[in-house]
Simulated assay, not measured.
Amino acid sequence: MEMKQLIAMVTVAEAGSVTYAAQMLHIVQPAVTRQIKTLEDELGVVLFDRTRHGMVLTSAGEVFLSHARRALQELERARTELTPQTGEITGPVSVGVLESLLDVIVPPLASSVAARFPGVELRVMSGFSGYLQNWLDDGVVDIAVLYNLADTPAMRVKPLLSERLWAVAPADAGLVPTEDVTWHRVLSRALILPIVGHGLRTLIDRARSDIPIEPKISLETNSMSVQKQMVLAGRGWTILPGAGVARDVEEGKFSAAPLAEPSLSRSVVVGLQRATRISRAVRAVNSELFRVSRDLVNSGTWPSATLLDTPTH
């Protein structure tokens, strides 16, 4: 088994096509096909179903993909660590971030890392908390910003902050971030909510369980973007973390206010793999993540947030 075979397999899985994978790898298509076939022969399993719509991972392919990704990341980490050390911190660092936190944390983090650690190759992926946890376990990301999660056998978790959830309404509803809005008022409106089983939906259902008003749900979705679009379309109000909507409120797209009676908050945490050796680059970005978050909270840029713990390394 060769490294180029693993690279070909991962690239085809991500591109969904041998043609696109060949373009991304800057090699000819038959070479990619040959590497995949050789790998399948060596493993004794079929990794992809060849369909009209492209290359689709088989169940065996899904299993092997996570191991291939981890192997490639470990090799990249080893290459970086074995490179003669200079004073500069270098190497790739992948950070998984909740969709609702992208706008508030990624721009300042990227700017800060670029300024302080120009040799670090920062990569950002977004997804739901469950996906981020799986990606961290599988080595797809080095750091994950998740919520409401404790230590696991594979992950070390550090609390970052607690942030309140907001009711989000059309601009003419008159909600303001400095004045709480009650659940009774929110539940009197049609609501666009996350799907059942989504972490945010679980928090919402738990918080409203003692209020004798059944919500009028106009739409359920697993996308924060769709929640916002449906509010803009006049389909109802929604509930989101303040960080996910603060910029939109400033721009006048929505009105929004923290929920009260009862107040509803979620804990944001930062996860690192427990079993792997943490590179200098990952430690640097992790430290920078906490520093940037502290500055965002203290400046009021991260709305309705309270720091829980801010380790420096």
Rank of each mutant, 00 (worst) to 15 (best):
W166I: 02
E214V: 14
P153C: 14
G244N: 01
T221W: 03
G199L: 09
S218L: 03
D172I: 01
K158P: 00
Q133D: 11
L160P: 01
A190Y: 04
V168I: 12
P159N: 11
R123N: 07
V176S: 14
S218V: 08
I217T: 15
G119D: 10
K158G: 01
L203Q: 13
P212I: 04
S223C: 02
A169Y: 06
L240V: 02
G139S: 06
N222S: 14
N134Y: 07
R208P: 00
V231D: 03
V120F: 01
L203E: 11
M224I: 01
E121W: 00
L160W: 14
A167P: 07
L191P: 02
V141E: 09
I143V: 15
D137V: 10
P118F: 06
D205K: 00
V196N: 12
W135P: 01
P159Y: 12
Q133S: 13
S126V: 08
A169Q: 05
G199D: 08
L146D: 05
P153G: 13
S162W: 08
Q227Y: 03
G199E: 09
V157Q: 03
S126R: 11
A167D: 12
G242I: 11
V231M: 05
Q227V: 03
M230P: 00
T221C: 06
S209A: 15
G139F: 02
E163M: 14
K216N: 10
R235I: 00
V124E: 03
H184I: 11
G139D: 06
L200E: 07
Y131D: 11
L132M: 10
S126Y: 03
V120S: 06
V141I: 13
A115H: 09
A243T: 07
V157D: 05
P215Y: 08
G234T: 09
M125N: 03
D205A: 08
R201A: 15
E214M: 11
T221M: 04
V181W: 07
K228F: 05
N222A: 14
P215S: 05
P241S: 06
G199V: 09
G234K: 10
L187H: 10
V186L: 14
L219G: 00
R206L: 12
K158H: 14
